[in-house]
């Protein structure tokens, strides 16, 4: 685990750097890839940047509203740089809505937009596993396998690396079949990563549970898998037409 990096006099969380690096690379990949789907690459990248910014602001506002009694008396706390004062699920929802809203406003058709960001999303999921490893998150159960890693006082399954490998295999499969997956690439990337996390979830030791029994991460991955499969089924019946809304309508 490499939780911190020393950059000059500053100490920075490694995971934060990896998240930002992953976002930057994903945005660049989406920008370049958008042209193949008849979209303005800069508009696609802007949609992602706006999603990130609104996501961060939304996550902070949601955290503030959850602790309103405290924050209403401390306006300085609203803009403090404490990165943990974020309600992540609310931020993800706000960021996704903002990205899609901006894409709609710029008349980027949904399906080509999602196809444009698919490989970037796949890359981000690979980097996400490495970021989780750096901060010791999503850690595995105790194991004495030769490739087990020393983490939190025990040798454990490197579940974060399993997730990265699953993400890389998904991305590789998408690349290999990218022509036949045209129009369904986004659903393929989401389904591949959801299946990865469903399986990785079997080895997780993190005690985040739904109904005090089922692993939260697995339940979320299951929902994503079903949604991606439904998207795949829906899009399989429709011809794929690249371009923005004015071109497709």
């Amino acid at each position: 685990m490499y939780r911190h990096l020393n950059i000059g006099p500053a100490v920075v969380e490694t995971a934060l750097i990896l998240y930002l690096l992953g976002f930057y690379i994903s945005g660049e990949v989406a920008r370049r890839h958008a042209k193949r789907h008849g979209l303005d690459g800069n508009a696609v990248q802007n949609a992602l940047i706006i999603g990130l910014l609104v996501g961060i602001i939304g996550a902070r506002l949601a955290y503030i509203f959850q602790h309103w009694a405290i924050y209403r008396e401390d306006l300085g706390g609203w803009i403090s740089l404490t990165p943990q004062a974020l309600a992540i699920p609310a931020g993800l929802l706000a960021g996704t809505a903002a990205s899609l809203g901006y894409a709609y406003w710029r008349k980027l058709a949904l399906r080509p937009f999602l196809e444009s960001i698919a490989p970037g999303l796949g890359l981000f999921m690979v980097i996400l596993g490495l970021a989780l490893l750096a901060r010791g998150g999503a850690f595995g159960q105790a194991s004495d396998l030769p490739w087990a890693i020393d983490l939190w006082g025990e040798t454990r399954h490197p579940t974060q690396l399993y997730a990265s490998i699953g993400g890389a295999l998904t991305l590789g499969a998408w690349w290999y079949w990218r022509l036949s997956l045209l129009g369904r690439g986004f659903a393929f990337i989401v389904a591949g990563n959801a299946l990865t996390w469903l399986l990785v979830g079997l080895l997780l030791a993190e005690p985040e549970l739904v109904l005090n029994t089922y692993r939260t991460l697995q339940v979320v991955a299951w929902a994503a898998l079903v949604a991606a499969t439904l998207g795949w089924a829906w899009w399989s019946q429709l011809p794929y037409q690249p371009g923005n809304l004015s071109q497709t309508e």
Partner: peptide
């Protein structure tokens, strides 16, 4: 779709704590 629901649900059930 049916397989995703069934197999996914089975894996979640196998991972129960």
């Amino acid at each position: 779709v049916f397989a995703a629901i069934l197999i996914g649900g089975l894996i979640v059930w196998l991972g129960r704590v």
